[in-house]
């Protein structure tokens, strides 16, 4: 399962950038700002959002291949409901960064707030700092990479995909997860309900290392071994197939 998912993870998209330009968020309401981002995106340009000022709901609902960067911190639900974006955030984020991401890539240079990658279904999110509580809550696909530590309830109710935490995770890791894998390089505070640890296989380790190196993680900061948290499936009541997959099975 891991290998198949890994194959599906898109590399950081290089959008068809013709000429970049910037938008000063300070001068615009959130609604106007998002409209400006969308119209710029449709012209295929790289957009830099200046003074994002930790405001909420920036760059939501963009379903085109595009390239964005935020010159500062963003608030709640940044890049939520997006499909195909490639975004970089130079500061921190509030709750729910990349909520429901379908595909594309989000990179955040500092810390992510709680619920990063909530319900994401594809693509990848890379947090260079730490993540707050409930990272990858209800994840349904894709890869969430956290270079620092991740908080309480990491991978809570996760249904698919994988979370790779280079540092440690807090208490109740993998609580009530159905499917998917949480890899942890550091310490695990405690395991959540119906979660268990397994040892990663040799091939998984090799694949993980190759994946992380491709993200420019230096060899010397990669953990020596990864712990692996999966569902113990004692409370398992779950059909992990997407509707399309189920149709295919029936046929």
């Amino acid at each position: 399962m891991t290998k198949r998912l890994a194959g599906n993870v898109p590399k950081a998209l290089s959008a068809p950038v013709s000429q970049g330009y910037s938008i000063d968020a300070r001068k615009l309401t959130t609604r106007l700002l998002n409209a400006s981002i969308k119209s710029g995106v449709s012209k295929g340009r790289h957009i830099t959002i200046l003074n994002p000022d930790a405001r909420h709901n920036l760059a939501v609902g963009i379903v085109k291949r595009c390239s964005l960067s935020f010159a500062g911190s963003v608030g709640y639900y940044c890049c939520a409901f997006c499909d195909g974006i490639s975004a970089t955030i130079e500061g921190n984020s509030g709750w729910g960064l990349g909520d429901n991401l379908m595909s594309g890539s989000i990179v955040i240079r500092q810390d992510a707030g709680a619920s990063v990658g909530a319900s994401m279904r594809g693509g990848q999110i890379l947090v260079w700092g730490n993540a707050g509580a409930r990272a990858g809550i209800s994840m349904k696909g894709g890869t969430l990479v956290i270079a620092g530590n991740s908080g309480f309830l990491t991978g809570f109710m996760m249904q698919r995909g994988r979370i790779i935490v280079m540092g440690g995770v807090g208490d109740a890791a993998g609580d009530s997860m159905y499917e998917g894998i949480v890899y942890v390089g550091g310490e695990i505070g405690s395991l959540g309900v119906d979660a268990k640890t397994e040892s990663a296989t040799r091939s998984e380790e090799v694949e993980l290392r190759a994946f992380l190196k491709a993200l420019k993680f230096r060899d010397d900061i990669l953990p020596r071994r990864f712990k692996k948290i999966v569902s113990a499936k004692r409370l398992y009541q779950y059909d992990s197939l997407e509707p399309l997959e189920r149709e295919r099975l029936v046929i």
Partner: peptide
């Protein structure tokens, strides 16, 4: 509660910590 408020007094300093449970 939110970083947006911290930005009013620290416009450029992006270091911030989020206490855990």
């Amino acid at each position: 509660s939110e970083e947006v408020a911290l930005r009013r007094i620290f416009p450029d300093d992006v270091r911030r910590v989020e206490p855990q449970e």
